[in-house]
């Protein structure tokens, strides 16, 4: 069979105002389509491009500060990641607000989909005198980190390259937050229990679900209760 390249689906996530739409436009140009997420009036923008024979579809997720089930936008972003299982997540991180933005990055990582991190607003970070060691950051997060300046089109090729290479990076997705002895001992129990339920462990990332149960997240509870009563 002739190799025709891969079909890659990329979810574009990021905190509000991090430059998601700008990067989305930078990558897809005019090839965009706008619809709504099923049943809600939140806009779902998709776009396509091809790179080295791979056909890449981008889906712009709503901008959210985190991935709880408190707001409709967060639930939409989260459901898309959990149920549609994209090939990777392009996480747009505002380099000038790195610490706050990484909060979402960690939550994305916990869902377990490979990440490509676009470290956007590098010009703003530089103007503020922030020096960011992108190699170190990439090493610590176990994911590629590409510096970008979205409104200047900087980093476009590098982001495209990182996206088609996600499947080659075996480190990707291996990052894990250590919540400390006290919490980890309970998380360990939850993870074990959830792994034993084959329906749950086949459908949801067990680590993520355990953390959410500890946060008393209503949606996570619903998922588990539904699976148990089925």
């Amino acid at each position: 069979m002739r190799h025709k390249g891969n079909k890659i689906v990329v979810a574009v996530a990021g905190q509000p105002n991090s430059g998601k739409s700008t990067i989305f436009n930078m990558l897809t140009g005019a090839r965009q389509h706008v619809a709504n997420y099923p049943g809600v009036t939140v806009e779902k923008r998709t776009g396509k491009y091809s790179h080295n024979g791979n056909s890449v579809t981008l889906v712009d997720l709503p901008g959210t500060y985190s991935l709880t089930s408190y707001s409709q936008e967060e639930r939409i972003a989260r459901d898309f990641l959990l149920h549609e299982k994209p090939t990777c997540v392009l996480d747009i991180v505002d380099a000038s607000n790195l610490e706050r933005n990484l909060y979402l990055t960690f939550q994305l990582q916990e869902i377990g989909i490979p990440l490509v991190i676009a470290l956007n607003m590098m010009d703003v970070a530089q103007a503020r005198g922030h020096v960011i060691d992108t190699h170190k950051l990439s090493e610590l997060l176990g994911a590629p980190v590409v510096p970008t300046v979205g409104n200047k089109g900087k980093g476009k090729q590098e982001v495209k390259e990182a996206i088609v290479n996600t499947h080659k990076n075996t480190e990707n997705g291996s990052f894990r937050i250590d919540y400390g002895e006290k919490l980890e001992s309970i998380l360990g129990l939850l993870e074990k229990k959830l792994s034993e339920d084959l329906d749950i462990s086949a459908s949801y990332p067990v680590r993520w679900l355990s953390v959410k149960l500890m946060e008393n997240d209503s949606e996570a509870r619903r998922l588990v209760e539904k699976a148990v009563s089925a």
């Binding site: 500060y65 709880t68 408190y70 707001s71």
Partner: peptide, 12 residues
Amino acid sequence: GGATGQRLMDMG
């Protein structure tokens, strides 16, 4: 607690 507490945590 709840959504407000979460939002403040999101903000650090």
